[in-house]
Design a protein around this nucleic acid. Structure first.
Lengths: 205, 205
DNA sequence: ACGGCAACTGTACCTGTGGTACAGTGCGGC
DNA sequence: GCCGCACTGTACCACAGGTACAGTTGCCGT
């Protein structure tokens, strides 16, 4: 998208904006504060983004790409150490839980959750991106669960699609709970509970 | 037309506001549109709420109270039919899942989730109310799970507090997934999955 | 060395939303 | 008949988002 040598400014704005949006919400994040923090002018901002909606779109694009990369990395590391897809999955979930537990404060938040209750503020493109992102995460988990189910027949009747969605739901829900209860342990705890459930489904109690 | 004392208007504003806020977000809901829909003037609005923040607070108060009532009702109905606390819990979860499945469209949404990513917009009072509400839901589930664990020793090592939080996380996460995927079945599915997990924890596979 | 273009700055001005201030009004109950 | 609740009407303000557009700066290829 930027064929030229980089506008580091654009990236800096996105970085600042993501932190601000996750901390206090999109509407409460003013362009004014972003340009002050980034050390540019209003004109400079609108040079990079034609309006606030375009900032949101860019933010989501970046977020989904980054998230995909982090996920892929965790699962790759876990799989290196494991033959069995189930054990690889369980290790990955543990790594993920540890990663979120090791964050200095509570998890910064999920942009998708942050935007989903205000999506009328944004374009259709935004909604499609969110759908795309979540669908790809679902597919990622579903593929993995399907592979696992081949080797380890589920001990209870279960929809693998729903079990895949559960990971997403529990992470987003866990972040929300962490924020509201001001307790950073809730998210890693919920991830470990999901892990317990998956293990139980495929290995029994 | 019996516009008795006590302001029906205030309630009408809250009703309209809740629907609008859940549909498109708090920031995207203007006072202007609310007063047009409610058939009052701006002055009328500010007679009832000193500012938009107070509307938010009233909205949350109402939401939590309503939610508590619905929950209490479901569990009361489920318990009427069951001696065993576990079976009562499982029946209640099924009733809850059916209730959400029977909604005409997707679930209208959870105000707590909707507000949690923009809580800097609101007062400390707001954040305390949300904490209070979620804490009481946690306690509600935890008390129940504790009762269950006395009769049915858990088959796997598990923190009952985390299992209680899981219900909240999964509902909020499930609603978010339903919205993003535009699939009203995800929420009831996730509730049933939680039910499967609880059953498995206390009864085994 | 020079022209061109990306990446800005500066100034001016407009709109919508939230919010304040306060005087006035209709009507139901005592 | 008059008190006061639940409003209406008018006027006015601040600020965020946004438009418009002319000007500036510095790196890049030729």
């Amino acid at each position: 998208m930027s064929p030229r040598k980089g506008s580091a400014t654009r990236e800096r704005i996105l970085e600042l904006a993501e932190a601000a949006v996750l901390e206090k919400g999109f509407a409460a994040t003013s362009i004014e504060e972003l340009i002050v923090a980034a050390g540019i002018t209003k004109s400079g901002f609108f040079y990079h983004f034609k309006d606030k909606g375009e900032l949101a779109t860019a933010l989501m694009q970046r977020y989904i790409a980054h998230n995909d990369a982090v996920m892929a990395d965790i699962f790759a590391r876990a799989d290196e150490l494991n033959e069995d897809p189930l054990h690889g999955f369980l290790v990955a979930l543990k790594l993920f839980a540890e990663m979120t537990a090791d964050l200095p404060g509570t998890h910064p938040g999920c942009l998708v959750s942050a935007f989903c209750y205000q999506d009328r503020l944004f374009s259709q493109e935004m909604r499609d991106m969110m759908l795309e992102g979540v669908s790809s995460w679902r597919k990622f988990f579903l593929d993995r669960l399907t592979l696992i189910a081949e080797r380890h027949p589920p001990r209870i009747k279960i929809e693998l699609e729903a079990l895949a969605d559960m990971a997403n739901a529990l992470v987003d829900g866990g972040i929300i709970m962490s924020r509201i209860m001001r307790d950073k342990n809730i998210l890693p705890q919920q991830i470990m509970l999901y892990r317990d459930f998956v293990r139980t489904v495929f290995l029994g109690t």
